[in-house]
Amino acid sequence: MIRIKFQQSLDELKERLLVMAGLVEQAIQRATEAYTSRDESLCELVKMSEPAINRMEREIDQLALDLLAMEQPMAVDLRFILSVIRINVDLERMGDQAVNIAGRVLDLGKQANVDLPVDIPRLALLSAAMVRKALQAFIEGDAEMAQSVLMLDDQVDDMNRDAFRALGDLIKDKPELAPQALNALIISRNLERVGDHATNIAEDVIFWVRGRDVRHHSLPDDGD
């Protein structure tokens, strides 16, 4: 093995991104748990994680930039660093979604607890699974696993669309429940966005591993 220092820097970049991903996953998980338990302290924890996530985003960006400038990476290394830069952005946005959800949950806490025609925990489970799988694909450099994330996205989109319809109907039928319905609607939308970011991450993994850009295609390419 040569270019030992460069290889170490690439490993470090990957490691840091995974630490950040851990924080983001935890934030999403806490936010959705808070929805079920209406636990306000969890919401506060989610909000408190934001500065740390933002700081990590900047550090990862800087490290990636340094490597581009100093090491002139090529081919698979270049694609890897580009993927990390993109994934970094997606993770940060996912963190924002978690914070948004926590905000909605806090608002819901001020409102009467009612039954809503939306299965937020299931939607949360599904989008969290997408995130996990996308990150696992990143850890293992597994384009096939990444490909399977793209399939899940349709399910999440469908669930969000159903929620939209059901909650819209509810607002029409029982306007007095509009505040709760709107919060649930926004949370559903936030979770759907989390799924979108997981999809982006999966696409970046495919780009890194296979050297092919699969973004903005309705159907995934079949493998080589």
Binding site: M1, I2, R3, M74, A75, V76, R79
Partner: peptide, 19 residues
């Protein structure tokens, strides 16, 4: 060649992992 070479040997060379 520089973003996605077809041959492993090309990739090893241009990424500096040759040998």
């Amino acid at each position: 060649i520089f973003t996605n070479p077809s041959d492993k040997r090309t990739e090893d060379y241009i990424t500096g992992r040759f040998g």
